[in-house]
Design a binder for these strands. Sequence first.
DNA 1: CGCGATATTGATATAGATCAACTAATGTGG
DNA 2: CCACATTAGTTGATCTATATCAATATCGCG
Lengths: 250, 250
Amino acid sequence: MELSGQQREDARRFLLGRRRSELTQDERAALAAVLSARMVIPARRTIVRRGEEVRHSTLLVSGFLSRYMDARDGYRQIVSVQVPGDFVDLHGYPLRRLDHGIATLTEATVVTVSHEDLTGLVKRFPHLARMLWFSTLLDAAMHREWIFRLGRLEAAGRLAHFLCETYERLRAVGLAADGRFEFPLTQQDIGEACGLTSVHVNRTLRRLREDGLVEVSAREARLLDMSKLAALGEFEPDYLYLDDERRSVR
Amino acid sequence: MELSGQQREDARRFLLGRRRSELTQDERAALAAVLSARMVIPARRTIVRRGEEVRHSTLLVSGFLSRYMDARDGYRQIVSVQVPGDFVDLHGYPLRRLDHGIATLTEATVVTVSHEDLTGLVKRFPHLARMLWFSTLLDAAMHREWIFRLGRLEAAGRLAHFLCETYERLRAVGLAADGRFEFPLTQQDIGEACGLTSVHVNRTLRRLREDGLVEVSAREARLLDMSKLAALGEFEPDYLYLDDERRSVR
DNA sequence: CGCGATATTGATATAGATCAACTAATGTGG
DNA sequence: CCACATTAGTTGATCTATATCAATATCGCG
């Protein structure tokens, strides 16, 4: 079967910025070959609900997705924001059933891989299997950092940490530079990620702006003083396992 | 090489209570064969520090371990409590370097597997490899629930949720029944897990006791009203992927 | 028995939630 | 392209859950 340029390009995004986990030509081609056609999903759509069985996994090509859990009072807690290049629900492959919901934050382009195809892939390419495992472990590492953020930082630190993490992850996949990146989340979204009300996010962002640390608009975030932000958020990017962690921040 | 009864017994604990992930005789024997001798570690010892490279992974046989992150102010955030049968730092195998510390909470007995041996195992037993992956994904699922707990529940709910989760996990490995289990954590430990001060843990536990929901002493926890506790903590154990989730709680 | 760690309780301070109003942006149909 | 509707952002006033500080009580252990 002929590979389309689009499939190649989509497969290339996976684990971008983690050279240590470079895939071979063969592995990448095999992955590309099982990718579905691209699908575009409007903003703020639920893709998978908690408890649902999944038969394929989703690779995010562009836009932002959230993984979230609903609370009884109607509020939701975002447990993870996925950026382009992330396999969103790869863990659904061994687990079969998702323990949380997935929704778009912005309009998003995705491609999928059926679990059947994944089984074929991991049989033929043990190293690729290991890299898929690795990528789910990155998620877990980010979860842990997310726990730290909620458990030990106050509002300003949480926002600083969240912004630093998002920046570094986008930078790794070429979507951020010079402290700037597209960031079309609402203050409500940010609050749901950081365990704060949108009102408090607003006030805290204002303070950070007044202190010259960041500027966050509806479209874009600008991190004006990375080292102060990193200090405020106690952000140490080692847990992202990036290529160039020694040079980034600090 | 002859397998000792102890090795067999230790290997048997892995993924106990998750029948869906049953290992074959061969797989279990192969795992048992690479387990180290048991080691006993005193309470409150750091086992691995953040950033450390690891060359083996640890299977907990008895006692409690914590995975934690240090904050600048000297406080720590516990991101996970490991119970017997858990592979504590299996994610260190693909990741190589830990993004958090590991310490004993109580005296603990552990056995280890070298990453070299793990590589041998996963080559020979792809299904076992998948189960190892599965077990790290259980950790990730618990992390997500931990995020929910910190982000969306107030003190009483957090404690209720934490106690329910711990109970169900211990029950799965035969260490809890009738709402009771050994639970030798200090209120300080509980606070570090739930993002609360020990003072507030104390007051909140008192309220739960006065309401007839739990009794937590230095040795033991007694969950007196599981259904109220589960409601208070918005605890739905599906994320633990237990054998009998339909029957448990609720 | 006495000492260090843990638990308990009280008084006070504070970060963030809640409620409420208003403004600014964004989008839609006529 | 404007009028209006909808959504998101902003600000103020007040309330509350939890932190902080401090003192005492209790427990487990050598």
